[in-house]
Amino acid sequence: MFEQFAGETRAAVSDALEEARLRGDRRIGTEHLLLGALSHQPAAAAGTGLGVDAGAVRDALRELDTEALTAVGVDARGVDRPPIPASRKRTPFTSSAKSVLGGALAEVRREGARRITPAHLLIALLETKEPDPAADVLTRLGVDRAAARERLRRAA
């Protein structure tokens, strides 16, 4: 599948790995793919996509974590939270991140396109259901999934 990735999609996936390290995660999940895909949409597509940017997604993820920690009595505000070291082994994808990659491929076939672009990843990410991490954050940000999907397909 990876050989069909457009250049920006490869960059989006390697950014997803970096986002995982920044957040302290040892696997690449759908929330990291979402951040990577948002960072590599062509600038022209900015208003035509989800209507949220990577910064808003990062903030919402942090908020969800803070709330969950508070619910179990942990206050980690003000703690130094650096990126974790890169693993020497290959960083695996979570099972839902793998399904999103498969969903992006299905979207490419539906369109009859030749390359998997970041927009195909975003369309597949819009299909995730809670409690998937990407779905949780899209809900938190109030993203209208059907409208976003339409905009992304029209822009293709």
Binding site: G24, D25, V74, I84
Partner: peptide
């Protein structure tokens, strides 16, 4: 506790532990 919140808290604790370990 709602299990969705409890499980998210466990994920958040893992992330916090990795970051506190690194620093």
């Amino acid at each position: 506790l709602d299990p969705a919140v409890g499980l998210r808290a466990v994920g958040a604790l893992h992330r916090l532990a990795e970051q506190v370990e690194a620093s």
